[in-house]
Write a protein that binds this DNA or RNA. Structure first.
Lengths: 226, 226
DNA sequence: TTCGTCATGTAATGGGTTACATGATTAC
DNA sequence: GTAATCATGTAACCCATTACATGACGAA
C-alpha cells in the first residue's frame, strides 16, 4: 500500500504546485519535464496519487469545476478526478526541496530535483549542486583506484568502457562547476547554452532566481500539447 | 524461481568463460568489470547461479580441485562452490553474444555487451554498435521534437536539464561513431584515448580483434588521467 | 460506427536491494 | 582471541513495468 517512491512523490507534488491536474495529464507532463531521467507509467502513478491523498498532501476533486480548476480540465466532458495540492502538501514539498535526504545526490534523484530548481532558493540549489558534485567526485575516485588496481586484467574494450564512463562523469562534474559558478556569481544569470556566461542576458531582475515558469509563461493556449 | 535477469546471466557466462570462480569472486569481478553500468548483490547473483546450473549452462564443483580449478580457489581453505561453464553454456553465451534480443540497445544491456566485445567477432560488434547508435538517434529525435513543442512552458532550469541531457546523448553518439569508424577501418585498432586515431599503435596482429585480455593495454603511464 | 485519445485503474510479473543468518579462514 | 574478509545463502521488501479491463467523448 505504501506506493510512494520518493522521486515520483516529489515530482508529482512539484508539478501540482503549478496547477491541478488529472492523473492522465500529470503523467504526460512528468514524462516530458523529466523525460531525460525518468519515465513513469500509470501503474506507478495512480497508486502513488492515492497514497498522497491518504497522506493529506493532495485532495481529489470530482464535481463540476470547484473554482480553481483550469477550464481545460472539463471542457464539457464529464469531469474526472483532478488532483490539487493542499496547503499541507505545499509545505511538505518545500520541506522536501530543502531537506534533501541522503539519496538526493543519486542520479535520478538529482535530475528530478534539478527540474524543480526554479521553485527553491539559491541556497538550496547550491547545497544540492555541491552535494551532487562531491558525490560524483567520490565516484570518480573509486573508479580511478579500482581501475588502477585491475587495469592489467582488463581487455581493451573493458578498458575503453571504463575510460568512457569516467569521462562522462568528469563532464558531469564540469557541468556542475559551471552551474555552481553561475549560481554563485549570478543574480538571475540563467543557464543558457553552456551556462556560465557573463554576457548581457539577465532577464531583468537581479536579486533572485529565475522564478519558476520564469519570464515566459503563461498563455494557456494549449493544454495537452506536451 | 526464474531468477534469470538477462544481463546478469550474460555477464556471468561471459566472466566464467575466462575461468571458473566462486560466486563471491564472481560478484567482485562483475562489479569492477561492469562497474560503471551495473552492480549486483548476492541476493541476485546466487539465485541466478542456481538457475544457470539448472539450465545446464554451469556446473558446480565442490570437491578438492577437480583439475582446471585455479589454485587460488582453494589454497588450503576448504573448497567452496566453484562454478564452471559447460560446453552448452559456452555455446549459449556465443548465441547470446551474436543474436542480441531487442533490448540489446538499451543503456545497461549495451554496456554489458560492450564489456564482452573482446569475445566476439567484428561483425557482431558492428551490429551492436550500430544498433545502439540508431537507438540513441531515435531518442535524440524524440527529445528534440518534445522539446520544440513545450519549450515555452518550461522554466530555465528544466530547459537546461533538457539541453544537458541531449548533449550527453549526442556525445554518446559521437563516441559510437568513433568506435564504429575504428572497427570498420581498423584491424586491431584498439580504442585508446579518444578512439579513432590512425597513429602507430596497432599491437601487432592485424586480422582480428583485441583478443580478450589482449596484449596491448594502453601504456600504463598514467592510470587515472582521463 | 469506428477510431483515437482521454481517463482510471488493477493483477501479474520482473528484477532488484537490504538485512539477516551462518560459518570458515587468515592475519595480527 | 579478535577482526577482517572470504563465502553462501534467504526472506522481506521496494519499485516499477506490462498487459489487461473498463469506459466516455470527439471526430471522420
Amino acid at each position: 500500500m505504501s506506493r510512494r517512491s520518493g522521486i515520483l512523490e516529489f515530482a508529482v507534488l512539484g508539478l501540482l504546485r503549478e496547477s491541478p491536474m488529472h492523473g492522465y495529464e500529470l503523467r504526460k507532463r512528468l514524462n516530458t519535464s523529466l523525460g531525460v531521467f525518468r519515465a513513469f507509467s500509470y501503474g506507478t502513478l495512480y497508486p502513488c496519487l492515492k497514497a498522497l491523498v491518504a497522506s493529506g498532501w493532495l485532495i481529489e476533486e470530482t464535481a463540476g469545476a470547484p473554482e480553481g480548476v483550469p477550464a481545460a480540465a472539463l471542457t464539457g466532458r464529464r469531469a474526472k478526478i483532478v488532483y490539487r495540492l493542499t496547503a499541507a502538501g505545499k509545505e511538505h514539498f518545500e520541506e522536501l526541496l530543502a531537506h534533501s535526504g541522503p539519496d538526493a545526490w543519486e542520479d535520478e534523484h538529482f535530475g528530478v530535483r534539478f527540474a524543480f530548481f526554479g521553485q527553491t532558493s539559491r541556497d538550496v540549489r547550491m547545497r544540492v549542486l555541491e552535494g551532487r558534485r562531491s558525490r560524483l567526485e567520490e565516484r570518480l575516485e573509486r573508479m580511478r583506484t579500482s581501475l588502477a588496481r585491475s587495469r592489467e586484467r582488463m581487455d581493451d574494450y573493458t578498458l575503453e568502457l571504463q575510460r568512457h564512463g569516467m569521462e562522462s562523469v568528469e563532464r558531469e562534474v564540469r557541468w556542475l562547476n559551471e552551474l555552481i559558478e553561475s549560481e554563485r556569481a549570478g543574480r538571475d544569470q540563467r543557464p543558457t547554452g553552456s551556462a556560465a556566461q557573463d554576457k548581457k542576458n539577465q532577464s531583468g531582475d537581479t536579486g533572485g532566481l529565475p522564478r519558476h515558469r520564469g519570464g515566459s509563461r503563461p498563455d494557456p493556449s494549449d493544454d495537452t500539447t506536451t
